[in-house]
Amino acid sequence: MEVRYELIIPNDDLPFRLFVFEGRDGKYKVTKHWHHSMEIFLVQEGEIDFYINNNHVPLARQDFVLVNSNEVHSIDCPNPNLTIVLQIPGGTFKEYLGEDGYLNFEKKSDIQNIKLVNLVTTMFSIYEKQEYGYRLKVKSHFYELLYLLITEFKTEALDKDTLRQKKQLDKLSDVTQYMRDNYDQDLKLEEVAVRFGFSPTYLSRIFQKYAQVNYRTFLIDLRVKYAVRELVGTEHEIGEIAMNHGFADSRAFSKAFKKRYGCLPSTYRKNMAENR
């Protein structure tokens, strides 16, 4: 199965990630991938083609799709569109998991679907304006949305094939969650493998198979992604940011950063400031 694992980091000071889909200009594809978060794609304008476990789900204006944790999906956007994406960390629903340890959601009646569309649209409008106190307001709608999902969109059971796939991907999800929580520490492959009862060879193999990168590359990607938030959100020195996110020094950070972003951290920070 040629798929990749997508790392999802919530917005600053919010328990979820909310943004406009990057394929808004059209002629854009997202290859098969999966993540531990639950995801909502809501099309505001235009159309996109969604594929979940090889099932085609076309989306038009005011239509949405619910992507459950550990579901393999891909996206094709041949034409311009405006799509809101809400990503909810899998741990958000841990108190409501079924007997098999999983929780799935699916679309329901028109009335219920409209409720969801209105909540997500309102959340995005509040978040986009960022007026005084917006975080409190958007969180209130977010928890209303969670209640709606749990009470009106939850499915009761999973078929055997879906359950088997989720269990396979859960092995890697547990490891990557531990890595997200401890990415700034010295996380050696051998030590992490022992912690989860794997051999280093097995852990390395499932990383390559499901994340499409090796363990070391995934760890460095993780560190860079978190470091970018501090880079653009503070005036901290580059060396301090490097140390805060698990890099040996600013040189190691700059090398990893340039490989992924095509420029040095200082240049990236300057460009972001100018764009703002």
Rank of each mutant, 00 (worst) to 15 (best):
A256N: 12
V194R: 11
V120H: 06
I52S: 05
F64K: 08
T267G: 02
K171H: 10
E47N: 11
L203W: 04
D249R: 13
P265A: 10
Q87W: 06
N104P: 00
D186A: 14
N214Q: 01
I238T: 12
A60Y: 12
K209S: 13
T83L: 13
Y134W: 07
Q87A: 13
E274W: 08
I9W: 06
T176P: 00
V30Q: 07
N113I: 06
T31A: 12
F196H: 08
P80G: 13
F142K: 09
L66N: 01
E71K: 01
E240K: 11
I241S: 09
I126F: 07
K171A: 00
K225D: 06
L136E: 13
T267D: 11
K108Y: 02
A273V: 07
E240Q: 10
H236C: 00
R229L: 08
D184L: 03
V224T: 03
F257I: 02
D100N: 14
V213D: 00
E106M: 04
K115D: 12
E230D: 15
L97H: 11
V228K: 04
I52P: 02
C263P: 00
K259M: 12
Y215V: 11
S125F: 13
E45A: 03
Q208P: 03
Y102L: 05
F41K: 00
F207Q: 03
V213H: 00
D221Q: 14
E2Y: 12
L7V: 03
L203M: 12
A157G: 05
T162S: 09
M38C: 00
F247H: 06
R24G: 02
K137H: 02
I48Q: 09
E128N: 12
Q168A: 02
E144T: 11
K154C: 06
P265E: 13
Q44N: 05
L189W: 06
K255A: 15
Y210A: 08
N104A: 14
Q112L: 15
F64W: 14
E235F: 09
C77N: 06
R269D: 01
L203P: 07
F16R: 01
K188D: 09
R216L: 10
Y147H: 10
L59N: 04
S173M: 07
